[in-house]
Amino acid sequence: MRTPRALRSPGGAAGAATVLVLVAAGLLAPWLSPYAPDFQQTGAVLRGPSAGHWFGTDDLGRDVLSRLLYGIRQDVIIIVLAVPLSKAIGIAIGLLATTHKAADVLVQRVLDLKLAFPTVILGAALAAFLGPGFSTVLIVIVISGIPVTARLTRTAVLTERERGYVTGARVVGASRTAILVTHILPNAVDALVVNFVMSAAGAVFLEGALSLLGFGIQPPAPSLGGMIEKGLPYLAEQHWGVLAPIAVLTGLVIGLNLLGDALNAALRRG
């Protein structure tokens, strides 16, 4: 693993720190937030920042900071559920493609089909048939991450297979599955870690985009994208209701991208 080295680069360190702080804030939301995320305070609608409400209140008198923390938590939950699932399916499909020529052709065609679907269009189609909400966001993120992972796995396996140690193992008489699991996969882990981090950034981005289109997580549950969408009509009156989630969302996306870049660079330097 070259991961620790990646953190030594300034970009990698900054990215990791940003992501760490934000994720920690999200996970600690129940202890950090001054109010319940859905508590509506009577007579305090669209207030600007104050000592009681650091980022002010939204159109229903709810504390923006508290919703923000719970919103991060929601996005983290989505990442934790969707990205590994997406990777697992992607890896499985990628491995399937390396087993047989016919399987390879089939997999490539199916991946082509997915690539022809822009992700937001996929989101629209799913939202139409499943209804908007958490599960739709989850499925869109899972599906959107599959093709790249599958291709990456396929290429990695095909490349590694030609390496000396695999040929060696084969000569010794190891089974195909054993070779795959004990030799090839561990060597592809680094590439997948980079891919994982990049997909997490993509997930945060997608949650926001789907919310803006009205396909995202539904009220009263807070999410970063949902806060942006609900706050937009009041941008002129209470811009903190939008700026705060925007800053966090952008911080997460950039942080994860920086981290991914640094990991990638460390990986290439070998």
Partner: peptide
């Protein structure tokens, strides 16, 4: 360029509205 690359298009759009329309 790194900043613009990292900022989602829709975020840039909202910031533009805040700056030049509001």
């Amino acid at each position: 360029s790194a900043l613009i690359f990292g900022v989602p298009e829709y975020v840039l759009g909202i910031l533009l509205i805040l700056a030049f329309a509001i």
